[in-house]
Design a protein around this nucleic acid. Sequence first.
DNA 1: ACCGTAATGCTAACGGTTAGTGTTTTGCAA
DNA 2: TTGCAAAACACTAACCGTTAGCATTACGGT
Lengths: 210, 210
Amino acid sequence: MTEPIGRRERKKAATRQKIADAALRLFRERGFDAVGIRDVAAEADVAVTTVFSHFASKEALVFDQDRDFEQGLVRAVSERAPQEGLVSALHRELRAQVRHCTSDDARPAGSIIEASPALQEYEKAMRLRHADSLAAAVAGELGLAEPSTACRALARFVVDAFQLAREAPDPDAALDEVFRMIESAWAAQAAAREPIGRRRSAASSSAGGR
Amino acid sequence: MTEPIGRRERKKAATRQKIADAALRLFRERGFDAVGIRDVAAEADVAVTTVFSHFASKEALVFDQDRDFEQGLVRAVSERAPQEGLVSALHRELRAQVRHCTSDDARPAGSIIEASPALQEYEKAMRLRHADSLAAAVAGELGLAEPSTACRALARFVVDAFQLAREAPDPDAALDEVFRMIESAWAAQAAAREPIGRRRSAASSSAGGR
DNA sequence: ACCGTAATGCTAACGGTTAGTGTTTTGCAA
DNA sequence: TTGCAAAACACTAACCGTTAGCATTACGGT
């Protein structure tokens, strides 16, 4: 499944890793803003253009492995248990993500981001793009051709919940609190859509396991 | 109230206006990305450094008068009618703002922003900052020393509502829809905070005038 | 062995932004 | 009026992220 790789791809991956390692090391030592792309390239012993052939931007050097977030959200809604509510599934997924981010401080990226306002801005913009993906996934789950306003709103709220939870002193409690609000908001939207009638297979009910 | 201004401040304001006008003219003619700061400076007949002494960035040249949004939100909560609900006041304010943005296409900023993805990113990041101001205002209105999680969530949701409404084919309807969700979310949060007891002077109820 | 191509390198540049350094203009007081 | 400090402005030169252009090397399939 991950074997048919030749020397070429191995070398490419090695170069990429060498760059990422060098960047992380320098960022931790001197801080994100005090390290130039040219420094990273020199430390990794590659050309500047090679850095940009592996990473789209300087910020992408920090958010290298952070594709998990977007994928996690989309999978949480598409692969959830048959009768589990959309919001509940997202609640569980985000609880796991928040814990992974806050507890695993060993991950050096966290401290680097906290030390650079520029990086925090970048992260927020990135999460907004994730919200669009989530909105599309939710719309698909509901059988809609394109995301409705309610889908988009839900997706935004969920991403907001993640960010608010991470900034809060007690992330778990904050996440639960915001998700109570989201749960209610989603229910109100569903009620307005179906005045009186049969419910969809997926209704609501907040996450249980704690 | 706006009189005790000397020649110095008048000249400074004139220079600022001259720069803003020149920038807007060039942006409209050639597009945001095709105009350099050096072009703007030349057109306004000032030095590049002077441009940056009046505007923090190239993007700020476009979002010059857009302090209205932030101020409007804060004033909507602080200067609302005594018995009007927080969410209702914000709903009314945003309805006005959305209409002002969508109808008043004469304002040249709108078309410039639509033509540049970079500007749209910048705008989203800007709105997030506005959410923090709104959260602080809401917290103050509730007698809290610092914004609680619920305040921050409400502020985020409100800003989300604005952006979603502007992107929607029917902005007014989308705004109403998202605000139904927000209203419900806020009510759920209030209920969780006061299990059973007297209500605050400001409760809820959605905006009426339409 | 051969050729197309992906990966990397080097140089130079573009555009936003800033530091350093003067020069003019303005407000204010002696 | 004169003198002076500060603000506003100009000019130069650079820094930094990013990209284009082109040369070179290493690899993979034929």
